[in-house]
Amino acid sequence: MSRFFPAPLLSVSLFFLWLLLNLSVSPGNLLLGALLGVLAPILMAPLRPQHAHVRRPLVIARLIGRVGIDVIASNLQVARTVLFMGSRPPRSAFVHIPLDLRDAHGLAALSMITTVVPGTVWSELALDRSVLLLHVLDLEDEAAFIEHFKHTYERPLREIFE
């Protein structure tokens, strides 16, 4: 069965996403959605040799909530920084963050989190995955930022993936 459905959740998600994007449940769209849901994971399975072992669903839920809150707060902070730039220019800086997270899936999730949170940009990852170079739009205290980043994002991802 796993030969035809190497990623059953992905197959179901692709099927429903196809129907949602087309806003139709016509027989043709049902057939195309089913074909997409079955064939895409089979054809792309060789591209993903390493399977993720996700643990602790409650930590995932807390992390998603925390990222949502941080996105809203960061949007407000970036807007305030841009609107009132004349009174105090932003203190942009590159920050080297030592990483304990080594799992490829966890690092991918961390890169997505830093991408969606305004004011931070993932700039570079060391070849040995030990240090992340992050650009921060307005940095007040580097040590406090590193501690917050590691505690808020890296630690939960380690619990989930390692």
Rank of each mutant, 00 (worst) to 15 (best):
V67C: 06
A40K: 06
V54K: 12
L35Q: 05
R62P: 00
A79W: 06
R102E: 12
V38S: 06
R56H: 10
M85I: 11
S87H: 07
R102C: 04
L83P: 01
V95Y: 05
R80L: 09
T81W: 01
L76D: 00
R55A: 14
V78S: 00
G68R: 13
G68V: 04
L36S: 14
D103I: 08
A34T: 09
V67G: 11
A45C: 11
P90L: 10
M85G: 04
A79F: 03
I64E: 00
V78Y: 00
S74M: 01
V67Y: 01
R56C: 04
H51C: 08
P98W: 07
T81F: 05
I60M: 13
G37A: 12
S87A: 12
G68Q: 11
I97F: 04
V67N: 06
A79L: 07
N75Y: 03
R91T: 03
A40C: 11
F84D: 08
M85P: 00
Q50C: 05
A45W: 06
M85D: 09
H96A: 14
V71L: 12
F84W: 10
I42K: 11
I72Q: 09
P98L: 13
F84T: 10
M44Q: 08
P89A: 15
L43S: 10
S74L: 03
R56Y: 04
V38C: 08
R55C: 10
I69W: 05
P57E: 02
A61R: 10
L83Q: 08
P49S: 06
L47R: 08
L39Q: 07
S92E: 08
L39K: 10
L83N: 06
I42T: 02
R56D: 03
R66W: 00
D103G: 11
I72A: 15
P49R: 14
A61P: 01
L63M: 06
V59W: 04
L99G: 06
R102K: 15
I64V: 14
A79S: 12
L83S: 07
D100L: 10
L99Y: 03
G65H: 05
A93T: 02
A40M: 09
H53Q: 13
R62W: 02
L36Q: 09
T81D: 07
S92G: 14
L58M: 13
V54H: 05
A61C: 04
L36M: 10
S74G: 07
M85K: 15
I42H: 00
H53I: 09
V82K: 13
L39S: 11
R91E: 13
P57M: 06
I64Q: 01
M85F: 04
I64P: 07
N75G: 02
A34Q: 06
L43A: 14
A79M: 10
G68Y: 04
P57L: 14
P98M: 12
G37P: 02
S87I: 14
N75A: 01
V38G: 01
S92C: 11
Q50D: 12
P49G: 10
L43M: 13
R48T: 00
S87L: 15
V95P: 05
H51K: 15
D103Q: 10
M85A: 13
P46G: 11
H53L: 09
R91K: 15
L76E: 00
G65W: 03
I64F: 04
N75H: 02
V95I: 05
R62N: 10
I60T: 05
I64G: 08
A93R: 12
R66K: 11
H53N: 12
R62S: 12
V67P: 00
P98K: 08
I60A: 10
